[in-house]
Amino acid sequence: MSFLGFGRPQPTSAEKIAAVEAEMKLLTEMHNRLTKACAKKCVPSDYREGDLNKGESVCLDRCAAKFFDVHMKVSELLQQESQQRGPGGGFGFGG
């Protein structure tokens, strides 16, 4: 695509569009999972009241913080593990 082929310094437009779309999908997917997890942890499912009370609100904030931390932690652990075992070992779909 790059006419003179100088090492492709810029992504093409199609690549930029694909990257924005992928980013968007990752973010909404994470947002949905966060919501599902913290609703379960913090909000009882009998719905005796429609407003978030103080306790639930504080719980949601802390739950979100912990969810992001677990996300980071799992990401680090998988990286360590994949460096130790090398590609193909451990986690994932063994072909």
Binding site: C42, S45, S57, D61
Partner: peptide, 16 residues
């Protein structure tokens, strides 16, 4: 109440 609470919850978690 379930819908109302989930709107509030979703709003709050979006901010975080």
């Amino acid at each position: 109440r379930c819908v109302q609470k989930h709107m509030a919850l979703s709003q709050r978690l979006s901010e975080r």
